[in-house]
């Protein structure tokens, strides 16, 4: 297994490089030169050339990539085209709210999906099961922005129970814990709906498979209480495949966070992405895209390793 883990890590090195290549070249597709963003539109062509040379933009694309990669290795993501502050700082100031939002959504989604999925699997073919499966379809089919607007309409505008957006009430004491939680509820509900819709289906089908295994029948035959059989024997094995779903969920959450943050004016990476798109701040976009990709990349790697550790049934060579 150690060999497998080492090999898995070695294989991921070229993938990591590939991630940086793709990230770099997507932004290169942009029309015009980044120097245009630094310059007055009336600047002379001669001056523009000098600026491009100073920024290293006159060099071949491969050299530009290697220069960028060299900076990256030293933890330097470059400067924002717009604010001229280091991209790493810009991202650093926005990553907290996004992590809070995604973390809370993940916890809520799993807290709902796992018990509900188990229930549906145990009562397969009953109304409880159909309701759960139907709910899961609802969750994966409703777009984030429509659900978000709907929730704002009902809970913020009609009932007035919750705020329409932001992280905390502006002004006043800056918001106590309860105020923070109130602002968190709706965006978390939006993100958690999609994630748990997907998750429920995985838990259910994984649990249905586990419940039909021979060792479960054996456990029943031994006369163990049904609760022990489901929760100790079947559930443990049913949850193993879900390790790999986590990295898929992470990618989904990062994508969903963009729309959700935009609707709820949540000052995280998603809103930063939209702001950087409208101000054509490509260096920040490159940074956000890279950080997001690295997070998913790391989650994938971790999931594979954890899978190898927790599932002794699979032999790796």
């Amino acid at each position: 297994m150690t060999t497998y883990i080492i090999r898995r890590i070695l294989i991921s090195i070229p993938v990591l490089l590939g991630v940086t290549v793709l990230n770099f070249f997507i932004v290169q597709l942009a029309p015009g030169s980044p120097a245009d963003l630094y310059l007055d539109p009336n600047a002379s062509p001669d001056y523009k050339e000098r600026v491009e040379a100073a920024l290293g933009l006159d060099q071949p694309i491969m050299v530009q990539y290697l220069n960028w990669l060299g900076q990256l290795v030293r933890g330097d993501l470059g400067l924002s085209y717009v604010s001229r502050t280091p991209v790493a700082e810009v991202i650093g100031s926005r990553i907290g709210p996004t992590l809070l939002l995604m973390g809370a959504a993940l916890v809520v989604a799993y807290a709902i999906a796992i018990p509900v999925g188990i229930l549906a699997a145990k009562r397969k073919g009953t109304w409880a099961d159909y309701t759960v499966v139907g709910g899961a379809f609802f969750g994966v089919s409703i777009p984030h922005f429509f659900l978000g607007l709907g929730l704002i309409y009902v809970f913020a505008l009609q009932l007035g129970w919750l705020p329409t957006g932001n992280m905390a009430t502006i002004g006043g004491d800056g918001g106590g814990l309860w105020d923070r939680i109130q602002h968190l509820i709706l965006p978390v509900a939006v993100l958690a709906t999609a994630i748990s819709g997907n998750m429920v289906r995985y838990v259910r089908s994984s649990m249905v498979d586990a419940l039909s295994e021979d060792y479960v029948r054996t456990a029943h035959a031994k006369g163990l209480p049904p609760g022990v059989v489901t929760h100790k024997h079947a559930l443990r094995n049913a949850l193993i495949p879900l390790v790999t779903v986590l990295s898929v969920d992470l990618a989904g959450l990062l994508g969903g966070a963009i729309v959700t943050e935009q609707i709820f004016q949540w000052p995280g990476l998603g809103m930063l992405t939209i702001q950087s798109i409208s101000s054509r701040d490509y260096s920040v976009l490159m940074g956000v895209n890279l950080i997001a990709a690295l997070a998913v990349f790391a989650a994938n790697l971790l999931a594979d390793i954890v899978y190898a550790v927790v599932d002794p049934r699979i032999e790796y060579t």
């Binding site: 793709l22 997001a292 990709a293």
Partner: peptide, 24 residues
Amino acid sequence: MRVVDVFMSFPYFMVILILVAVIG
């Protein structure tokens, strides 16, 4: 398959959004 891994590392919606923003 390594190329597939590279593509799958990018959160789908985010990378589509950025690509569209870049190419118009």
